[in-house]
Design a protein around this nucleic acid. Structure first.
Lengths: 159, 159
DNA sequence: ATATCTGCAAACAATTTGCAGACGC
DNA sequence: GCGTCTGCAAATTGTTTGCAGATAT
């Protein structure tokens, strides 16, 4: 989805909630659409600053909240109390494997899993907006480096 | 897995890391095994207090960190900066649907999805320790209440 | 014995909030 | 013009850390 389209949607969303479109909210939305990567609230704030934007830190946080509420951004919780955001309107979702030793992130996508998720949702009458599948474990490099705790290996050998 | 077994494993884990088993660590591990639900660090601390345990807040946090590191507990990031823990050794994993409106949590388990995840791991040479699949959206009750934002409905109708 | 642990309270980091003035609609 | 927004700085929340004494091995 193009930034202009997203902006239009955002305006609609705000109107419906009887909220107002402001320069600051525009800035944040456009910056969110200027990257295809995850970003934190602080990163967004620094971008605003770099671009000479006028949004304050508080406004950035408030606007990110609105964007998540409206389904424009997905919030991905990933340890250490920091929240990662990514724009999701019109984008394909990907899942993650995260190495507990070196923190490497491997992205993958499996259409069959997606389909089964939809099936589960139908079964429960659940309207899915977003999903997040994260596999935690050890990447092949770390396995070879012997970076896997014995407690984990013990468990593995039992199975 | 029984609490005593878990305790034994924890002792092994500590020994391997040249750390010591203490009364406080024992308390925390056993309390973690006394519930089958998720819990936060603060909840664990209040349990310790209620049981007349001696572990302080700091020790609770430190011990939970150790337990996660050893693969005894899973840490589930779920918004608002709070981390939920659950013991995972010897337990079957379940996934979650979370309602964005009423926060209701629906648990589900789909063996086929689990299998496909394993397949993806093999493909990448990844040793999975834990996985977390969370579907965010709106439960059927909230859909009927009209609690779904229009931006979401619009997106839905396009697809 | 000695190195690790613990409790305490202070430090931290990320995020939220109250309020007075600014600004969309 | 009215009611919402914003910026600021202070408040909150959840978690971590430094240090002196306590404790496991």
């Amino acid at each position: 989805m193009k930034p202009e389209t997203a902006l239009k949607r955002f305006e609609d969303f705000l109107r419906q909630k009887e909220l107002r479109m402001t320069q600051q909210r525009r800035e944040v939305l456009l910056l969110a659409w200027s990257t295809h990567d995850h970003f934190t609230a602080e990163e967004m704030f620094s971008w605003v600053r770099k671009e000479g934007g006028s949004a304050s830190r508080a406004t950035v946080y408030r606007t990110l909240g609105l964007l998540v509420e409206g389904g424009f951004l997905a919030a991905l919780e990933r340890g250490q109390g920091q929240i990662l955001y990514e724009h999701i309107l019109g984008h394909q979702h990907h899942d993650h494997m995260i190495c507990l030793s070196c923190s490497k992130i491997i992205e993958f996508r499996n259409a069959e899993i997606e389909r089964l998720q939809e099936e589960e949702c139908e079964r429960s009458g659940f309207l899915m907006v977003h999903h997040s599948l994260t596999l935690e474990g050890y990447c092949s490099a770390c396995q070879q480096r012997g970076a896997v705790p014995d407690a984990v290996l013990d468990r593995e050998s039992e199975a």
